[in-house]
Computed example of a mutant assay.
Amino acid sequence: MTDFERVLVNSFNAYIEENGVRAISYRLKQHRFTSQFLDVLVDSLNPDLYLGIECKSISVDKGAKALYFTQHFTVDKKGIHQIERISDYLNRSGRRGFLAVELRLGAGHGREAYMVPWKELEKKYLTQNLKLTLQEIRSFPEIKRDGKDYMVNPREWDRKESREESS
């Protein structure tokens, strides 16, 4: 489990506890020869918190200008791209999906993280627009930091999604 995933799970569980919501966030153990559908899951009877989140982290300080679908995502032995596998899982499970992208800015500059609705990612993939630029990533809702933790707020992500769907 990466540090970003661990911190995100802990941040979700803190949000759940602070708001008295019946839910739990967790990371499934990854096994060497089996594919893992998503990095972070949130289970709740509240559909707004029934989530599946894939986490990606890119190093801006080392020159990354975008998140590339060919470089940062996998293709399985059957030739199925990770975005297709996750989209299928989200459709079957009924979970709302997101891509959490952490931008590592280098020593002394900290990190930023953004929540990209899975539907947006899937749309780009299906139209063969196979990357998310830093500018595009930063146009999505930021997951604000509080020290080393993140302050998750799924309601903020909903508002962004709703605005875009009504446009």
Rank of each mutant, 00 (worst) to 15 (best):
G97N: 14
Q36H: 07
Y15S: 00
R95W: 04
I83E: 04
L134Y: 04
L126F: 06
L121Q: 05
T70W: 13
R104P: 00
W118C: 05
T74L: 05
L99D: 10
E54K: 09
Y26R: 09
Y50Q: 07
N19R: 13
V60F: 02
R32V: 12
L67R: 11
G97A: 14
R145I: 03
Y50R: 12
D48A: 08
T133L: 01
T127S: 15
V42W: 01
Y15G: 00
T127A: 08
S11G: 01
V40N: 03
R32D: 12
M115S: 11
F37H: 10
H31N: 13
S25W: 07
Q82F: 03
I143R: 01
S139G: 09
F140Q: 03
K65R: 15
K65D: 13
F140W: 02
Q128L: 13
G147P: 02
K119Q: 14
I16L: 03
F12K: 01
A66M: 06
G147C: 08
K144V: 12
K123H: 12
R104T: 07
Y15A: 01
R85F: 09
W118G: 10
Q30K: 15
I80Q: 13
E122S: 09
Q30E: 15
R111Y: 09
F140C: 11
T127K: 09
R22D: 13
L121E: 07
F73M: 02
L45M: 09
A113L: 00
G79N: 10
R32P: 03
S93V: 02
R92N: 14
L49G: 04
D39K: 04
K144L: 11
G52T: 02
K62D: 14
D146F: 12
R138D: 04
D146S: 15
